[in-house]
């Protein structure tokens, strides 16, 4: 870069120090010390207590299931959106992105109202003399919330990589004798993988760390690792333990990002 223009990066430099580097250092400081400020690994090792590793395990399980469901829902949807005759002027894409612009908390609260024992869905079901749906405060409601909230983050990167595939590459596969299924498995799917991988990161990481969805749709019974950390900061006021568990969570996030970077060599799907 031109030397004279380097100063233009200064605001971003200050920003990243103030809001990324310093907070991270504080997390590590609190995580690796006890209340008196002495060095300890206790907060990290605390993950091995049953309550904590169960929460982490449940978080990993639910976010993995949600990510898989997102792929299964998003891939066909992205293919439909790529069909120019259905998605004229990108209008359909707009409809699917629209919820992303509304407050995440609000949308989750809406699901709470819908799913409650005496909520909207159950009122309709009982009016129709159908058995009621009791999934609020269960892991199923949390998965529903995760899939609903994070689906657009899976649809967009897949849509992006699918729409970049040259129409003639697909035609070439057909021309060389491949039927529809072979064209999909041998050409379309491999070429859209970067988008899928990018989508996995964008769904898995926020799902793994969420505490709002589990708070609102899981009641207080189901604790994810995000809830445990939140409680350490806001209720127990044990910042050291909260930070220690955050470091553990960060390790899992970094692992998932490294895996996706290795798999996505071209960096194509990271355009979002």
């Amino acid at each position: 870069m031109n030397k004279n223009k380097k100063w233009m990066a200064t605001p971003y430099f200050i920003w990243s120090i103030a809001f990324i580097i310093i907070p991270l250092c504080m997390v590590f400081y609190y995580g690796l010390t006890d209340k008196t400020g002495a060095f300890t690994l206790e907060n990290i090792i605390a993950i091995t207590t049953e309550e904590h590793w169960k929460a982490l395990w449940l978080s990993l399980l639910l976010s993995t299931i949600s990510t898989l469901l997102c792929i299964l829902l998003a891939y066909p949807l992205a293919m439909i959106l790529c069909n120019a005759s259905i998605n004229q002027d990108g209008f359909l894409v707009l409809i699917f992105i629209l919820p992303m612009w509304m407050n995440f908390l609000l949308r989750t609260l809406a699901w709470q109202t819908l799913l409650e024992k005496t909520g909207v869905i159950n009122s309709i079901l009982s009016a129709l003399h159908l058995p009621s749906l009791n999934i609020i405060n269960t892991p199923y409601a949390i998965i529903l919330g995760m899939v609903y909230n994070f689906l657009p983050f899976m649809v967009l990167p897949i849509y992006n990589s699918l729409s970049k595939i040259d129409r003639n590459v697909v035609n070439a596969a057909r021309d060389l004798g491949a039927n529809n299924v072979q064209t999909f498995t041998k050409v379309i799917l491999p070429l859209s993988l970067p988008g899928v991988i990018s989508g996995i990161t964008m769904v898995f990481v926020p799902a793994l760390t969420t505490f709002v969805i589990s708070n609102l749709l899981g009641g207080s019974k189901i604790l994810l690792i995000g809830n445990v950390i939140e409680q350490e900061f806001t209720q127990t006021n044990n910042w050291n333990l909260g930070s220690g568990l955050s470091i553990i969570l960060m390790i899992f996030i970094i692992i998932s990002i490294v895996i996706s970077t290795i798999t996505d060599k071209d960096g194509e799907g990271n355009s979002l």
């Binding site: 003639n168 590459v169 035609n171 070439a172 596969a173 021309d175 060389l176 050409v187 491999p190 070429l191």
Partner: peptide, 12 residues
Amino acid sequence: NTVFQKYALFTH
């Protein structure tokens, strides 16, 4: 068989 404009090779 067809030879397409801009080659249309399978880049993967």
